[in-house]
Design a protein around this nucleic acid. Structure first.
Lengths: 322, 322
DNA sequence: TTGAAAGCGCTAACAC
DNA sequence: GTGTTAGCGCTTTCAA
């Protein structure tokens, strides 16, 4: 393993050829004699040569790479989403980089990511201008963000509309008295946006708070049951907490949905492995991924013409927990 | 190269300054008059200028970015692992790119990834030389791969040793008659490596096969129970299938661990949300991540000195399913 | 505080 | 087949 900084020139010199010939050998191009090729490759290996990706990309002038920003890869919603976005990106021949924001400033993550990608998509909870400064000129698609943004595309999730449907259908299925297990993720003093929306749609008899873990979801349901025993249907902030709620219900001997109905939000595939499987307001992640890809593709192609807004409405998925 | 092709020269011209001054403004460097700075920034915004990351990285001559290769982001084992690797990478100031291999040739994925990163770590099931060709000179760390590799680092998972412990402890806890739900992921005709190892350690009375899903794990357990009703302990190929097995056991009215004990392999946090929580042979992912980071750091620093091999032994984790 | 010159390492186009 | 010539777009001296 010889020293660092071996360049194409060193290889060319060692093999007694021109740089161009080295390029041809390394990139498996045509128009090169097998013998020359072999000699070059040998020299390259001898010297421990590694092409600079920056130089080569710079000269090549073509690359498409997008960055996905999520809070954490330990949250199945985000990994599901990342996987869906990767799928569409791969289809289009784009490389993807994933960055997580846990414990970091969103704008710093974006600034760093901007050095490596040609567009960014993800959950970016930061002021619009800040993002613009962190990644000047970079196409940015924000999911579930303030739709009034003027510098970034936004994919709105019309949770309100989905919730209206959810509650209506829940009523048809027999739900009468509702409560919520909320999760205050972003330090909103009063409660989450989802809680606010629910409040407008249905009379919540009780609201319990939970951390974003299965375990705490279970504890929250137990507290909730003590505080409001007459409630027959619990809406969880998301599926993770909903799954926790099912676990919690079982812990205190409640039948689901017999004694208590539980509904999540997100539509994680994870919910399907529960017993009973978790009913949920499912967010259409593949649709998000497709929309993001189209917005970015338009910017890549120069067809963009300013920021756009797309709205995607979640759909109730009735499994067996409600 | 998204959008147009506004370069630093265009901005310099528009602002009536030199390129270097543009650099100073864009990179928030010192030695620039506030007024000049503002003028440059304005021009840049007007033109929609975005610095080329390749040119800047090329000129800057410093960058640290690693690629993580896993089969899929829909498999919680891989996302857990990716998250652990990202954590150590972020600590060291390395950018990370994730690539998945589902439906693609590993060597092509590596070749593409090599254009974007300075080192690669992951599950790379491809011949050693092929990888070397795909990413000449790039530090590569392979997890759970053939330890005889001569061109890549290998982090061995000493599953055999872990399994010996697992079986010994299971016996102490009352297990007597063993079976396995295997998963043939890589087209091995006879069965998986894990199955082979188990065979050497314990007398398997039956082996059932499953796809890599919860649902099929459940079906497999039901088939297994019909074929070998006397078996008291089932080892699953991994936790995902183990979770499925618990679901399947419940479906046919079996108590776990009363009627049948179920043990997974991997140590996914996911196993904890089951009822009963899944006992498992846990793979120490943070240890893998740390080892990988050290191997790569050594190569980055030139302290490498040839490929190395590290061995990490899984540990039984007894929860409640066995 | 600013600018001019000199690369960074590679590849495309065109000669030979 | 192979080499030569020109950049790719940016940053880093170092001089002004």
């Amino acid at each position: 393993m010889p020293g660092k900084n071996v360049t194409i020139n060193d290889v060319a010199a060692a093999a007694g050829v021109s740089r161009q010939t080295v390029t041809r050998a390394m990139n498996e191009m045509a128009d090169i004699a097998p013998a020359t090729r072999k000699r070059v490759l040998n020299a390259a290996e001898q010297l421990g040569y590694r092409p600079s990706r920056f130089a080569s990309n710079l000269a090549r002038q073509k690359h498409r790479s997008i960055g996905i920003v999520v809070e954490s890869l330990r949250n199945p919603y985000y990994t599901d989403l990342a996987a869906d976005i990767m799928d569409v990106a791969t289809e289009r021949g784009w490389q993807t980089t994933i960055a997580t924001t846990t414990g970091q400033n969103v704008d710093e993550v974006v600034r760093e990511l901007a050095m490596h990608v040609d567009a960014i998509v993800g959950y970016l909870m930061a002021p619009d201008e800040l993002l613009q400064t962190a990644a000047p000129g970079l196409p940015i698609v924000r999911i579930d963000a303030d739709p009034s943004a003027r510098n970034t595309h936004v994919i709105e999730l019309d949770i309100a509309e989905g919730m209206r449907q959810l509650i209506a259908e829940a009523r048809e299925r027999g739900s009468r008295r509702f409560a919520m297990i909320d999760c205050v993720v972003l330090g909103a003093a009063q409660g989450s946006t989802r809680r606010g929306l629910l409040h407008e749609i249905v009379d919540l008899e009780h609201v319990e708070n939970s951390e974003l873990t299965i375990e705490d979801g279970a504890r929250a349901l137990i507290r909730l049951r003590e505080a409001a025993p007459a409630v027959d249907t619990v809406i969880a902030f998301n599926d993770l907490i909903g799954i926790g709620a099912i676990v919690g219900a079982h812990q205190i001997g409640l039948a689901v949905p017999g004694d208590i109905r539980i509904i999540g939000i997100d539509g994680l595939s994870l919910g399907e492995i529960m017993n009973p499987p978790l009913s949920t307001l499912a967010i259409d992640r593949p649709a998000i991924a497709r929309a993001a890809a189209e917005l970015i593709a338009a910017d890549f192609g120069g067809t963009g013409g300013g920021v756009r807004r797309v709205s995607i409405a979640p759909q109730p998925v009735w499994r067996n927990s409600a």
